[in-house]
Design a protein around this nucleic acid. Structure first.
Length: 471
RNA sequence: CGGGACGUGGCGCAGUCUGGCAGCGCACCGGCUUUGGGAGCCGGGGGUCGAGAGUUCAAAUCUCUCCGUCCCGACCA
């Protein structure tokens, strides 16, 4: 019997599908204040996994975690002209505290370049203090006109790295190292999302940066999502906050700084990159729960212990497994719920299976059901998880590539962006081209060399532009 | 911030045009029967109809103001 679909089909209404997934998979809901978001436990567990994986890579890149305050003196923001101009429209400003009007308003951090710059200036005296490599996990606030859960909320969680270096070259190399070794590596190998790394055009640069590098991913509707950025800040913040040091020759010099971040926006990317009409699809390496062992029914009380034993054995070989023995709820509903939540592998165990010495193993991505001998399950699951991990990346890559069109005119590029990405020679775009594409809500997502590398400048010869509609 | 749609138990909606006891499906609670893809039957509980003001004997329904949500455009991770 045909049931009404649980989720609005993606092809019918993608934004509605996204909302449905958030609700039905119990990921998040709106907070009481416009633009704020409550992250529910299942989604927060995924975020914690992202944090763990990204944090490990940041530490491997040599940065140390620290924490800087939520409140920033308004005057700090004003020290860097472009920075304050860029962020003013979206600042939350506290004017009262302790029942009195404050002498100087404090802003709730939209990002922490300014406070951290102030302290870097204190901590950096000598070239021997450099590079100074800091990171913090924090919440930030940017008042949003048009919030969308996870993608653009007024308050979001992120990681912001801030570094200071002796030379422009060192800063550039480090910003690129973060882009590739931390962000791209995490997104490709853990999130199974193929990202295009590239250089932002000046209009899309971070306020106060001299160069912004980005990871751009394609979502299920063909639109682009900026999943992470790494900025070269030149000496702009060093000058504003006097981050200066004595070099080897005793000369006083200004440091070169970088900053870089990824946020809870990645949750939105995860949902929209892999999700299907049955719900979320979580790549196994990310999944907080990789396997759910589902007791179909258990009249005589023998099935649940067998299932629990399987969970224990899976845990013993390093698989994050969970037992679902809530047999008061019908089997079909529970199966559907785990699919909504995107758990990579479901193992169904019922009395019939035990009698036959096997279980049914179901893969979330393709829905394939494989009867498997009880004795072989624990040994096959890790390989199954890895297969699914690579299948997700392969599928996402194939889809992106098939929706990426090489174009030779702006009209072709705009047409390509109606469905996916357009690739066009950057020198064919220019200011007029940006205006032309903008009429179709298409923007330049990033610039790349023909080999997929990072262009050394905004106008390097041969540079290609990736254009798309974007979130 | 402009254009459009919409706010009615937790979720999805009808009722609004034409004012007259606040309803339906799902979810929730209890009982029995069930359980291999969204269980069935019986019995329950839950809503100041987004907020405020106005018109009226009477407002979910008419008028005004405000707030919020979603979609489309200008800004962002």
């Amino acid at each position: 019997m045909a049931k009404a679909p649980i989720l609005t089909p993606r092809a019918d209404d993608f934004p509605r599908w996204y909302q449905d997934v958030l609700n039905k998979a119990e990921l998040a809901e709106n907070g009481p204040v416009r633009g704020t978001m409550v992250i529910r436990p299942y989604a927060y567990a995924l975020w914690e996994r992202m944090v763990a994986e990204v944090d490990a890579r940041i530490k491997a890149a040599g940065a140390d975690n620290a924490y800087f305050p939520l409140f920033i003196p308004e005057s700090y923001l004003q020290r860097e002209a472009e920075h304050v101009e860029g962020f003013s429209p979206e600042l939350a400003v506290v004017t009262h505290g302790g029942g009195k009007q404050l002498e100087e308003p404090v802003v709730v951090r939209p990002t922490s370049e300014t406070v951290i710059g102030e302290y870097m200036a204190k901590w950096v005296q000598s070239y021997r203090d450099l590079p100074l490599l800091l990171n913090q996990w924090a919440n930030v606030v940017r008042w949003e006109l048009r919030p969308r859960m996870f993608l653009r909320t007024s308050e979001f969680l992120w990681q912001e790295g801030h570094t200071a270096h002796v030379s422009e070259e060192d800063a550039r190399v480090y910003a690129e190292r973060i882009l590739h070794d931390v962000y791209e590596d995490f997104m490709v190998n853990v999130l199974a999302i193929p990202v295009l790394t590239g250089r932002k055009i000046p209009e899309e640069r971070f306020a106060g940066a001299t160069n912004t590098l980005t990871c751009e991913a394609m979502m299920g509707d063909g639109k682009a999502l900026q999943m992470g950025t790494s900025h070269e800040l030149g000496q702009n913040f060093a000058r504003a906050f006097d981050i200066a040091f004595s070099d080897e020759t005793g000369e006083r010099a200004l440091a070169w700084t970088t900053s870089w971040g990824v946020s809870t926006r990645m949750m939105g990317g995860l949902i929209m990159a892999h999700g299907d009409d049955a719900g979320l699809v979580v790549p196994p390496r990310l999944a907080a729960t990789q396997v759910v062992v589902l007791v179909v029914r258990d009249e005589d009380g023998t099935v649940t212990p067998a299932a629990q034993q399987m969970v224990d054995e899976l845990a013993a070989v390093g698989v994050r497994a969970k037992l679902d023995a809530h047999t008061a709820t019908a089997f079909g509903r529970r199966a559907t719920n785990w699919e909504l939540k995107g758990v990579p592998v479901r193992i169904e165990v019922g009395p019939r299976d035990l009698a036959e010495g096997r279980v049914v193993v179901v893969r979330r991505d393709v829905g394939e059901k494989v009867p498997t001998d009880l004795s072989a399950v624990v040994a096959t699951v890790p390989g199954l998880l890895e297969d699914q991990q690579s299948a997700l990346l392969a599928a996402a890559t194939a889809r992106r590539d098939s929706l990426t069109v090489e174009c030779s005119t702006l009209d072709e590029a705009a047409e390509a962006a109606a469905h996916g990405f357009g690739q066009i020679a950057w020198d064919k775009v220019g200011a007029d081209g940006i205006e032309r594409l903008g009429r179709d809500a298409v923007t330049v997502r990033c610039l790349r060399t023909p080999e997929g590398g990072l262009p050394a400048s905004d106008d390097a010869p041969g540079t290609l532009a990736i254009v798309a509609r974007s979130y």
